[in-house]
Computed example of a mutant assay.
Amino acid sequence: MQVRTVAVTTTALLGVALTAPLSHARATAAGDDGPTVVAHRGASAYAPENTLAAVDKAAELGIRWVENDVQRTRDGELVVLHDDNLRRTTDAEEVFPDRSPWKVKDFTAAEIARLDAGSWFGSAYAGARVPTLEQYVDRVERNHQKLLLELKSPESYPGIEQQTLKVLANEGWLDRRHVAGRLVVQSFSADSIRTVHELKPAVKTGYLGTPAVSDLPEYAEFADQINPSHTSLTMSYVSAVHAFTGPHGRPMEVFAWTVDTAAAARLVAGHGVDGIITNKPDVVRDAVGEDPDSSAR
């Protein structure tokens, strides 16, 4: 997307940010609980990423929020997988040796369902499968968890926004209870997130990246969250984001990724982030605490 230039200076915006409500982490210093902890691709330090086993491991650890990645097969099925190809986390090279480069979009759902998505991580997970989006959200629902859903490379899958929302609706995830506190849809594509907001304004959305402060008013029209790499964060940037009101009438939030050490978690919590996305959710939770009633605000 082309984000229009907003006639406001960074200095002015940061000045406004000083009057923003206390961030989650700063509230922690006053005695409240810490940022929301989100299990990245499930508890992916302890189970194969984006599998149902990783969702279950997060639940076992007491983690309420899980994050996943959604892509589309050749025959139009939505599956949960991070990479645009199957090589790293499945045995696709062995099962389909003549199908290089093993792109997700070149395989049918039935073919992907044949693949072992767990052995690469450890023998205990041999036979784990790449879940469909339906299977994934059903497991999250069964575990009474919440979902931060990433649309992966949406430019490769035209119409994936509408299709994802349809699956979520069919699975009962677009009712008031879910959209009020159990679902966020995010992407590195601002166009994709804008499309989600236009199709289903009730759904909370997040933009993955670190837009210029001068561009934040534009993002605030369609994104509830700005979710950057933790290495790019400063306290002043987080405060600037918090100064803007998102499309649902609440201050915009910041969820930082991917934080896997206690020291890094304490650092970004000190910057005032609202959430931390991590492969090791137990480590982060123990380092910074977590709001027991968190709904990714």
Rank of each mutant, 00 (worst) to 15 (best):
102 W>G: 00
103 K>I: 00
103 K>F: 00
103 K>S: 05
104 V>T: 03
104 V>K: 02
105 K>S: 03
105 K>H: 02
107 F>D: 01
107 F>C: 01
112 I>N: 01
112 I>G: 01
112 I>D: 01
113 A>T: 04
113 A>E: 10
113 A>N: 06
113 A>G: 14
113 A>V: 06
115 L>W: 00
116 D>T: 03
116 D>I: 07
118 G>D: 10
119 S>W: 00
119 S>N: 00
120 W>S: 07
123 S>F: 01
124 A>G: 13
124 A>M: 03
125 Y>V: 00
125 Y>E: 00
126 A>R: 13
126 A>H: 05
128 A>F: 05
129 R>C: 03
129 R>W: 10
130 V>S: 13
130 V>R: 13
131 P>T: 05
132 T>A: 08
132 T>S: 03
132 T>F: 03
133 L>D: 14
134 E>C: 06
134 E>H: 05
134 E>L: 02
138 D>I: 06
138 D>H: 05
138 D>S: 14
139 R>S: 05
140 V>P: 09
140 V>L: 12
140 V>N: 08
141 E>Q: 04
143 N>R: 15
143 N>V: 13
143 N>T: 09
144 H>D: 10
144 H>G: 03
144 H>T: 03
144 H>R: 15
145 Q>G: 10
146 K>T: 06
146 K>L: 04
147 L>K: 11
149 L>N: 15
149 L>D: 13
150 E>D: 05
152 K>E: 12
152 K>A: 07
156 S>E: 15
158 P>Q: 08
158 P>E: 08
161 E>I: 13
164 T>C: 12
166 K>V: 10
167 V>K: 13
168 L>H: 09
168 L>G: 09
168 L>T: 11
169 A>V: 06
169 A>F: 07
170 N>A: 15
170 N>Q: 15
170 N>R: 15
170 N>S: 15
171 E>T: 11
172 G>W: 12
172 G>V: 12
175 D>M: 14
176 R>F: 08
177 R>T: 15
178 H>N: 02
179 V>K: 13
179 V>T: 15
181 G>F: 02
183 L>H: 11
184 V>G: 11
185 V>T: 11
186 Q>I: 11
186 Q>K: 07
187 S>R: 02
189 S>I: 05
192 S>F: 04
192 S>A: 15
195 T>I: 04
195 T>D: 06
196 V>P: 07
196 V>R: 12
197 H>T: 12
198 E>T: 08
198 E>P: 03
199 L>A: 08
200 K>M: 11
201 P>G: 08
202 A>W: 05
203 V>H: 00
204 K>I: 04
205 T>Q: 08
205 T>M: 04
206 G>A: 08
206 G>M: 07
207 Y>W: 12
208 L>S: 00
209 G>N: 07
209 G>Q: 12
209 G>P: 02
211 P>D: 12
211 P>Q: 03
212 A>N: 10
214 S>M: 08
214 S>E: 14
215 D>Y: 10
215 D>C: 07
216 L>D: 10
219 Y>A: 06
220 A>Q: 12
220 A>E: 00
223 A>C: 02
224 D>E: 13
224 D>N: 14
224 D>S: 13
225 Q>N: 11
226 I>P: 08
226 I>F: 05
226 I>D: 01
228 P>F: 05
229 S>V: 07
229 S>M: 09
229 S>H: 11
229 S>Q: 08
231 T>G: 02
231 T>V: 06
231 T>K: 04
232 S>M: 07
